[in-house]
Computed example of a mutant assay.
Amino acid sequence: MTQLAERQTVTFKGGTVTLVGNEVKVGDQAPNFTVLANNLTPVTLEDSKGSVRIISVVPSVDTGVCDAQTRRFNEEAANLGDVKILTVSVDLPFAQGRYCGAAGIENVQTLSDHRDLSFGHAYGVVIKELRLLARATFVIDKNDKLVHVEYVPEVTTHPDYEAAIAAAKAAL
């Protein structure tokens, strides 16, 4: 197995943490991944090929900022037309499904990276010390190119929603 890159570029509650996986940049071809939908079926990047995608990465939908981030993108989806919004965390698919039902999340697809950390390693967001994903947003155009990348410097703070939304609208 290939050695995954490690870097210390973000903090969690003020302490530096190690991110595992390859850092991606604007202009890169978006790496493929396999995560699980709430019904346990595998989902890959290829499944949404031909669409603009916002991938919202959160440590856990059971925390305040992650809940707010997921709700914000769920609300924004109505104004984004043909943009698919995927929220990825390591929460179990069952917990994600329960959360979506309780929170009224209908415009965002929640996906679990719990099984393999496939997404986390491909996008360089696995927090080694916690086995959680660091907060990030990625926008991928219809040709699978990354047009927006944000690794949020402090995991417990919000991403730049406006930048991600503007990048998605520009990619339509």
Results as ranks from 00 to 15, higher is better:
residue 153 P to Y: 05
residue 73 F to V: 12
residue 128 K to E: 12
residue 162 E to L: 10
residue 139 V to A: 05
residue 154 E to T: 11
residue 78 A to G: 01
residue 87 T to A: 15
residue 67 D to L: 10
residue 112 S to T: 11
residue 51 S to M: 05
residue 86 L to M: 13
residue 103 A to R: 15
residue 77 A to M: 13
residue 100 C to G: 10
residue 134 A to Q: 12
residue 81 G to A: 01
residue 155 V to C: 11
residue 109 Q to D: 12
residue 146 L to F: 03
residue 79 N to W: 12
residue 141 D to K: 09
residue 157 T to I: 10
residue 117 L to G: 12
residue 122 A to E: 13
residue 83 V to S: 05
residue 100 C to N: 14
residue 109 Q to N: 10
residue 101 G to A: 11
residue 129 E to I: 02
residue 129 E to T: 02
residue 106 E to K: 14
residue 136 A to T: 05
residue 83 V to N: 06
residue 105 I to A: 09
residue 96 Q to M: 15
residue 85 I to T: 07
residue 55 I to T: 08
residue 167 A to F: 01
residue 56 S to A: 10
residue 91 D to C: 04
residue 64 G to I: 01
residue 166 A to S: 13
residue 166 A to L: 10
residue 132 L to V: 07
residue 53 R to C: 05
residue 122 A to L: 09
residue 105 I to K: 07
residue 60 S to Y: 03
residue 136 A to Q: 06
residue 75 E to M: 13
residue 47 D to N: 06
residue 111 L to C: 01
residue 156 T to A: 13
residue 148 H to L: 01
residue 76 E to Q: 13
residue 58 V to A: 05
residue 141 D to W: 11
residue 58 V to W: 01
residue 73 F to A: 07
residue 72 R to I: 03
residue 113 D to T: 03
residue 152 V to T: 09
residue 121 H to M: 11
residue 128 K to V: 04
residue 65 V to R: 09
residue 159 P to W: 03
residue 149 V to F: 11
residue 139 V to P: 00
residue 157 T to P: 01
residue 110 T to M: 09
residue 108 V to C: 03
residue 125 V to P: 00
residue 165 I to S: 07
residue 111 L to E: 04
residue 89 S to Y: 00
residue 64 G to P: 06
residue 69 Q to N: 04
residue 56 S to C: 12
residue 53 R to I: 15
residue 98 R to S: 10
residue 52 V to Q: 00
residue 82 D to G: 04
residue 120 G to T: 14
residue 67 D to F: 10
residue 139 V to H: 05
residue 67 D to Y: 10
residue 50 G to P: 07
residue 95 A to C: 05
residue 72 R to Y: 15
residue 142 K to V: 11
